[in-house]
């Protein structure tokens, strides 16, 4: 985010980010926790809502922008990242947040993730990972464990799941974290840290589906099984160790920052602005633009 525009005159509380829309998630859905963590993180960041663009795809979790007072864009399935990049490049002053589910990010939209990361557009991407397609009533998701029986895998899934953490680490993201609404304090601080990180930041939130999710992947189980990376003594600057830990996705629920680049790379949006500045003086006036087609 841009420090110069962060000087809000009045401070914003969590209520300032809550819209009038009432969430229609199932009672007990993990996404409620993500939403309230979001409100708290945004209040801590304290940017006025109209300077925030919050983009999502399609899925239960993709409803989240509408529950905030930010400019929201609830777009089409899997395409939140391209839209968010267009927004950020068009107006780098904005704080641009992206959210969606595991299907949005790692199935239909999976092709966009590596490219958003290699460009290093300054976005915060929150995936609410519940290993199931909840909106369409319980089909297999790309993070569903092998063998899972769902509405679309009657006899059990024959596929190995993707590992979002390992993918994103390998793609080269500068900030990668995981959390769960079972750890609200941790979740809020991770969202805040991700937003403050200058560059592409990824958070995998284990956000249980109470209706179609596995019984062993609910908040209660998270609370019992989650392990804090910080308490384990993991150094977030150690990318290789982060990869070793990420391999345990599906077996262990590690919370906290897997990797944070201590020397963040220049962002795409900064490089774009730099190029515009460098070349800006070379512009022919727009009404003379056809002159370049004079034969000579």
């Amino acid at each position: 985010m841009n420090a110069a525009t962060a000087q809000a005159v009045e401070h914003h509380g969590t209520k300032d980010y809550q819209s009038d829309l009432k969430p229609i998630w199932c009672p007990g859905c993990g996404d409620f926790g993500v939403l309230s963590a979001m409100y708290r993180a945004l209040a801590a960041i304290d940017r006025p809502p109209h300077e925030i663009a919050f983009v999502s795809g399609i899925g239960c979790s993709s409803r989240i922008p509408g529950y905030t007072t930010a400019y929201g864009f609830n777009s089409v399935h899997g395409r939140a990242l391209p839209i968010a990049q267009g927004i950020k490049l068009a107006n780098p002053e904005l704080l641009v947040l992206v959210a969606g589910g595991d299907g949005d990010g790692f199935s239909i939209g999976g092709g966009h993730v590596p490219h958003a990361i290699r460009r290093n557009v300054d976005l915060t991407y929150i995936v609410m990972d519940n290993q199931i397609y909840g909106l369409t009533k319980g089909q297999l998701s790309p993070t569903s464990p092998r063998g899972l029986k769902t509405a679309s895998s009657t006899y059990g899934s024959l596929e190995a799941p993707v590992n979002p953490l390992l993918y994103v680490l390998a793609y080269g993201a500068g900030f990668i974290a995981q959390s769960t609404p079972a750890d609200m304090v941790g979740l809020v601080s991770i969202i805040e840290a991700a937003i403050r990180f200058p560059g592409f930041a990824f958070i995998n939130v284990q956000s249980p589906c109470v209706t179609f999710g596995q019984p062993e992947a609910q908040l209660k189980a998270h609370k019992a099984g989650m392990k804090s990376l910080e308490k384990m003594g993991h150094d977030p600057a150690d990318r290789l160790h982060a990869m070793a830990l990420a391999q345990e996705y599906g077996a262990e629920l590690y919370t906290g920052i897997f990797y944070q680049n201590p020397q963040p790379a220049p962002t795409y949006d900064d490089l774009v602005r730099q190029r515009q500045r460098e070349l800006g003086s070379a512009a022919t006036p727009k009404d003379k633009i056809l002159e370049m087609f004079r034969p000579n």
Binding site: F73, S75, R79, P82, I83, Q85, G86, A90, G111, H115
Partner: peptide, 19 residues
């Protein structure tokens, strides 16, 4: 962009952002 969809998607995003 990485593909045709992302290309038009980014353009839709930029239009939303006012360009």
């Amino acid at each position: 962009a990485e593909d045709e969809i992302a290309g038009v998607g980014a353009a839709v995003g930029a239009s939303f952002a006012g360009k």
